[in-house]
Computed example of a mutant assay.
Amino acid sequence: MKKLVVLTGAGISAESGIKTFRDSDGLWEGHDVMEVASPIGWNKNKELVLDFYNKRRRQLHEVAPNEGHFQLAELEKYFNVQIITQNVDNLHEKAGSSNILHLHGELFKVRSTKNIDYILDWKHDLNVGDCDENGHQLRPHIVWFGEDVPAIEEAIVHCEQADYLAVIGTSLQVYPAAGLLRYTYTDTPIFYIDPKPAILHSVANPLTVISKRASEGVAHLKELLMKKD
């Protein structure tokens, strides 16, 4: 069974009603990104940061996967599908996908501020005073700007093993995720699904652009892959 690696971004979740955080003026829900998504912001105002992510977490209880998510799960019947997502929601899991690597963390998890390996499932609000077993404050299990991306090495290995790579709903502007395409073999076909696709610079691979939303584009991707296989 051939390996299909799928890199997903905010575009696929936006179809389910999840806001993409960043507005046209560059603000995240009215906040400068450094206020709510950086260690500096956390140290400056923990209450603000926790409130920001509590609102995002609450929203996950109200949204559902869209057809793009379900179609990716369906592809597991025909391919060894590995999803690498920049999203922090759980919509791929809800849709039934089996192999999901979250590059930037997960909203339904929290971790200790002192022990990065102390991670808990967390479905409700997180507040100042919520601590690990040693009394250290818990924080969102989110990779903030300026922090390392622990999962990137595993993501690179998957891209190196890919027979096909699909990029869905991301302009690939945020590194290190944006650099993952470079780790595929140059003869590995890349499929780019986005209603307003960005220009993928320095891509030597065979490239197919599907200018559709994920809910429509993944179905088209399936048709193309089944013809190739």
Results as ranks from 00 to 15, higher is better:
120 L>A: 02
156 I>P: 03
111 R>V: 02
57 R>T: 01
52 F>G: 05
53 Y>D: 07
104 H>M: 02
22 R>L: 07
138 L>W: 06
35 E>L: 03
64 A>F: 14
64 A>H: 15
41 G>H: 08
121 D>H: 11
15 E>L: 10
121 D>C: 01
123 K>L: 07
155 A>D: 08
158 H>M: 08
111 R>N: 13
22 R>K: 15
181 L>K: 10
97 S>N: 15
171 S>K: 15
98 S>C: 03
180 L>H: 03
181 L>N: 05
9 G>F: 14
137 Q>V: 03
218 V>S: 04
146 G>D: 08
176 P>Q: 13
185 Y>T: 07
133 E>M: 06
54 N>C: 06
126 L>Y: 08
101 L>E: 01
62 E>H: 14
21 F>L: 08
209 V>N: 05
39 P>M: 09
219 A>K: 15
59 Q>R: 13
47 E>A: 15
211 S>M: 10
189 P>H: 03
118 Y>F: 11
150 P>D: 08
121 D>P: 12
149 V>M: 09
63 V>S: 13
48 L>I: 03
154 E>H: 01
102 H>D: 04
107 L>K: 01
101 L>M: 07
103 L>H: 04
31 H>N: 13
54 N>F: 07
39 P>H: 09
219 A>L: 14
198 A>N: 10
15 E>G: 09
222 K>V: 04
165 L>V: 14
115 N>A: 01
80 N>W: 06
32 D>F: 11
134 N>C: 03
109 K>N: 03
172 L>E: 12
28 W>Y: 15
100 I>N: 01
82 Q>D: 02
205 N>P: 02
8 T>Q: 02
119 I>K: 06
165 L>W: 09
96 G>A: 07
163 D>V: 02
54 N>W: 04
211 S>C: 10
219 A>F: 11
7 L>V: 11
19 K>Q: 11
63 V>H: 14
6 V>F: 07
141 H>T: 00
65 P>F: 12
81 V>D: 06
123 K>V: 01
3 K>N: 13
190 I>L: 13
117 D>E: 14
195 P>A: 05
13 S>V: 07
14 A>D: 04
222 K>R: 15
90 N>I: 03
115 N>S: 05
68 G>F: 11
228 K>L: 14
121 D>A: 07
150 P>G: 07
153 E>P: 00
196 K>Q: 12
18 I>H: 13
36 V>A: 06
104 H>S: 07
117 D>C: 02
199 I>W: 04
4 L>Y: 03
62 E>T: 15
119 I>L: 06
23 D>G: 15
211 S>A: 15
198 A>C: 08
56 R>H: 04
79 F>K: 05
18 I>T: 11
163 D>I: 02
18 I>L: 15
35 E>K: 12
161 Q>S: 11
181 L>V: 13
28 W>S: 12
74 E>H: 13
153 E>D: 13
22 R>C: 10
21 F>K: 11
144 W>L: 07
219 A>Q: 11
145 F>T: 06
29 E>K: 13
32 D>Q: 14
168 I>S: 08
125 D>K: 04
210 I>L: 15
94 K>Q: 14
162 A>S: 07
176 P>R: 14
108 F>A: 03
